[in-house]
Amino acid sequence: MNQSETVSSLVQVIIAGNRKAAPELAKKLLQSGMDAYEIVTAACSPAMERVGELYQEEEYFVPEILMSAKAFEAVMEILKPLLLEAQGQYSGTVILGVCEGDIHTIGKNLVATMLEAAGFKVIDLGKDVPVDRFIDSAVEYDADIIGASALMTTSMIAMEDIVDRAKTKGIRSKIMVGGGPVTQSYADSIGADGYGKDAKEAVDVAKRLMEG
């Protein structure tokens, strides 16, 4: 298998969610002299973008997209130490978390993976995150974007507080929201800068927010 064939195989196994084969192929590419950043842009990003499309086309559902994310993460595990040298190439920094009172992390994790695949630096605060932690972390990391997720209506209401607190504190981060009960009109009503209805859209929104 030559290098370009190995790249296409890597794309295929990430799409197929094969988390055993994916890191092996990445190692092979490194051995053949390809650099880590190029592996991300030539294989990981297009693979995860295709996964996002398959989800939107209703070919893929959560288990399939989750396994692709795992395969991608297994590749990143190998590439990350090598990518640290290339920090300047991040397209932006995103603070990500699930609102307080909510522990539904699947959607948030997929967004994190897709953002990483698209070249963003992701600071993942995890689940059940209080409003202040979003804000404090955004300040600490000088984040470009805060991404807040919720699956439950009872926790979704914290998004409004995040927007308000960010305004009062005068931080520069743009705010995007998403998750089960969240809609574009809800996002507009609380003054959020962006809304993504799924992980793929979230990446598109993040890219748009970076353009100003």
């Binding site: 288990p63 989750l66 396994m67 992390t105 699947i106």
Partner: peptide, 11 residues
Amino acid sequence: ETEFMMECLIE
């Protein structure tokens, strides 16, 4: 846990 169960549905 939901995510673990989703993984197992495939693997």
